[in-house]
Amino acid sequence: MSTLLAATGSLEPAARSFLSPTGAEVVFLLVGLAVLGAAVVSVTTKQLVHAALWLVVALGGLAVEFLLLTAEFIAWVQVLIYLGSVVVLVLFGLMLTRAPIGRSPDADSGNRWAALLVALAAAGTLVTLVADAFRTSWIDLTAGGGSTRATGEYLFRHWVLPFEALSVLLLAALVGAIVLSRSTSGRLPRPRAGKLRAGKPVGRPAAPAATVPSTAPTAPAQER
């Protein structure tokens, strides 16, 4: 490993021309176009489930980009977590909120044109800024920088504490998700015997439902 000072990349301006791209650059550009296209379709399509599937394409393309940037471990993590779990969760969400299969004309809100304006303005600003700032920067790609071995080394040598804190965060998120998914009526205290007063019911009228907390996925199904 070189020192931090040496790790500033190449700064020679004239050495690399945009007109003579390397092979990696060509692949990156092509995959990047695919990613961008998939993302755009994902946020504009009228079919909600298709949007999730196009998201899979975009995220998968990003995994390829990570590979091209020599971050192998992150690429696999991307595939595992995003393609494997996040998209599945999203599909679950779509199903559980009874998203219509097929085209839904009201997929976009009335805010669309304002959103487009803001997005384009932000894109223009960011691209101008980034292109102006990193016009001449060059990445010297050396293989192995993001291998599983290297990742394990830096992660458990330098980032152990944040890693552990993050696991606690994950645990909290898990508990939070479970709590949120439970039926709210289940948290009401049960009426105690002897404390009941005539003519004044304690708790919600739907007493039988309150005593049996149903799980999140089954509750909408019952209602249906």
């Binding site: 990156f28 980034v130 292109a131």
Partner: peptide, 13 residues
């Protein structure tokens, strides 16, 4: 690889 490519792609995304 030019840094601009991933940076611009990230901005657009």
């Amino acid at each position: 690889m030019h840094l601009v490519y991933p940076a611009v792609l990230a901005a657009l995304l």
